[in-house]
Structure formats: C-alpha cells, structure tokens
Design a protein around this nucleic acid. Structure first.
Length: 371
DNA sequence: CATGCGTGGGT
DNA sequence: TACCCAAGCAT
C-alpha cells in the first residue's frame, strides 16, 4: 500500500537524477564554455557545437571570445571578419544567423538574451535544441534540450524504438525529458545527458559497465543497447568533377571570387572553378577551363600544361573531385564585388572553404613561396 | 516533411 | 573503402 506505480516511478526518477548528476559533477570535462554561464558564451558555444565535435570547437571558441568578448563587440564586427573567424568550421549559415541575431539582441532586447522559449526562438539560428540549451544552462529553466546525444541515451534508457531520423520523433524525447528533468538543476541534468552520450553511451560500443545509470537502463536490461537507437540512414552522395585555376598577374595579384550569398559555402571566397561532366584528359581539361575563364573574365589567360594538384573533398551530401591548373592573366580587370585581384597577404585575410585552402597550400608549396 | 548545409574523426 | 557519426536549423 502506498506503493502505487506512480510512487515507484517517482522514486526511480529521483534515484536516476541523483546517479546521473553525481556522475556529471565528478566526471564532466573541463571545457572553456563551462567557466561561467553567461548567456552570450553559452549561445556561441551551442551554435558552434551543432553537428560539430567538442575537440574541433575548442580552439574556435577561444579565438572567438578573444576577438569578440561580448555581444556589443560581435554586433559591431564586419561581415568579412565574422566569416573569417568561422573559416574551416563548416555550416557557415550558422555564423551569419548568429551575427544577425546578436545584433537583434543588442538593438532590440537592450543587450539581454531573451529568457523565454517564445522570445529566444524568434532569433535566427535558434531552434528547439539551442533554445532549450540556453534556457537551461544560462537561466536554469527546466526546458528540454534534445539533441542527437539525448535521443540516443534516452532511447536506450527508456527503450524507445521510434526512428530518431524522423523530425517528429524529437517531440517524444522532449516529453520524456520534461518528466525526468531535475527541477533543482536543469542545467546539469541536460548537460549530463549529453556528456553521458559523449563519454559513456556512445553510438557504437557503449561502455555500459562504466555507466552511472546502468541500473536504470531498460535497453541494457533487455540486451538492446547495441541496436538502439533505431535510425534509418539516408541517401547516397552526388559526385562532381570540377576544374579550378590559381591565376596570377605579372605583378603578383591573384584572381579570386566570392561565392553566391546562399547555398553551399555561401559568401566564402574561392579560386575560379567550373563544373565539368566527367574527368577527362589534361589536354581536354585545360581547353575547357581556358575557354570558361576567358569567357567569364574577358581577359587573356595562359594556363600551364598540366595540373599542379588534385583535391578530393567530401561534403555531407556531395563530393568534389577538383583538378587544378596554375596560370597567368595578361590583363588586369575591373574590381567588382564578386571578383577581386588581391595580393597573397590580402588573400589570406579572407575566408576560403577547405578544398580551396588545400589548393592554396599546394600552390605555395609547389611554387616555393612559403613565408 | 525532406532536403541542403561542412568538416574531421572513427571503424 | 565506404560508410557513420557530432551539442541542428532553415526552408
């Protein structure tokens, strides 16, 4: 008597919270964005961490906070600096949206990050996960922050077999978190679930024997920890062949152009590049590229006979196979927004996608112009 | 709801 | 090699 199912679950939930949070207090990693809970820092770190590993983010976060220590500093930054500090981190629309949203907060929220889901969700780039993360970590609010870690961890603990690849499934886990979350410390609860997913309850071969909440785990109890979460995989990637050129004038200026302001690698700079149907012989490639460049830039261009490098790059949804020529431009051209002739030093202040960084690195090594 | 959007690491 | 994965969001 008095041992209703609800009472039993309540007891279990309290023990679960205690075991989880004790583990987190003991084992959490020392990360630069955990030094304090300033909303701005939490916000920046959460945007950087979207689909991105902790080890990758750390140096970016340090540089970011050094250059833009507060929202006012970041709001005042120019677009090129904003893109440059994100160079190599990927998903570049994140920083464009963050810049826009921080300016919005500085100008229309009196410099204070909103503390309700309703208001914070209006900011560009702040979706359901990021809203919950900021609200719980910076403001201590009992809001779910459901990311891939949380879905994996809770699918095992609660033995939830819904397909986590489906967008609608997130709601199931948000409901679960609302039941489980520790009202006394929502910040640690949410972070602990994610930390557990990163350190113990990993995608492959979870370390169940080291798990602080193994006794609460239905997946483990049923021998299903290896088959959870259920996740359907997606489509194959498309392969593209590209020809690219590093073009230099007689007075050592390089031709670069800005990519379109939306879509893949939006607003980043690149060496002139053209897509071709298939990879062909160098002589044919050289002809195709030469014709393209002369038509595009209406200037005389002399390409070297063979390519100086080949770059393969794998994106999440497509691959580039790039053959790259070096060449000379015989005439200068008018400066435009999208096309520029720049010195080596100027070039290196601008943001390039990784494959073009590889091209530039190979070019400098081959033409012995390091330093 | 499905798709596009980066990059680097792991097996 | 060829996947799969990582603190998602906008459209």
């Amino acid at each position: 008597m008095g041992e209703s199912k609800l009472d039993h679950d309540k007891m279990d939930i309290q023990q679960f919270r205690e075991d989880l949070l004790n583990w987190f207090v003991r084992e959490q990693r020392d990360l630069p964005w955990r030094k304090d809970n300033q909303p701005y820092k939490v916000w920046v770190s959460e945007i950087m961490l979207q689909q991105t590993r902790v080890d990758t983010v750390i140096p970016y976060f340090e540089r970011f906070m050094e250059e833009f220590p507060d929202m006012e500093a970041f709001a005042a930054a120019d677009d090129e600096s904003v893109l440059k500090i994100w160079e190599g981190l990927g998903y570049y629309s994140r920083v464009r949206n963050l810049h826009s949203a921080v300016k919005e907060v500085v100008e229309h929220y009196d410099g204070k990050v909103p503390d309700t889901r309703e208001e914070i969700s209006k900011l560009k780039g702040v979706g359901p996960y990021t809203a919950g993360a900021i609200l719980s970590i910076a403001y201590g609010k009992p809001e779910p922050a459901v990311d891939g870690n949380v879905m994996r961890v809770l699918s095992r603990i609660l033995l939830i077999e819904e397909d986590i690849a489906k967008p609608s499934t997130r709601k199931v886990f948000e409901a679960a978190v609302r039941t489980l979350i520790d009202p006394a410390n929502p910040s640690y609860f949410n972070q602990a679930l994610m930390e557990l997913g990163a350190l113990i309850c990993t995608p492959t071969s979870p370390a169940c024997l080291l798990c602080p909440v193994r006794e609460h785990c239905k997946g483990y109890a049923n021998g299903k920890e290896q088959v959870l979460p259920v996740k359907t995989r997606k489509k194959s990637v498309k392969h593209l062949s590209l020809l690219s050129a590093v073009l230099k004038t007689a007075d050592n200026l390089y031709l670069i152009r800005k990519r379109p302001n939306e879509g893949l690698l939006a607003n980043l700079w690149e060496f002139p590049t053209v897509e071709v149907a298939t990879s062909k012989q160098y002589s044919t490639q050289r002809q195709v590229l030469s014709r393209y460049l002369e038509k595009e830039y209406e200037t005389n261009i002399q390409l070297e006979t063979g390519t100086f490098t080949h770059v393969d790059h794998i994106f999440s949804h497509l691959t580039w196979s790039m053959d790259v020529f070096a060449g000379e431009i015989s005439k200068t051209l008018n400066h435009q927004d999208e096309v520029r002739l720049v010195t080596q030093e100027e070039l290196e202040t601008l943001a390039f996608p990784v494959p073009h960084q590889k091209i530039w690195k190979a070019y400098k090594e081959i033409y012995a112009m390091n330093k």
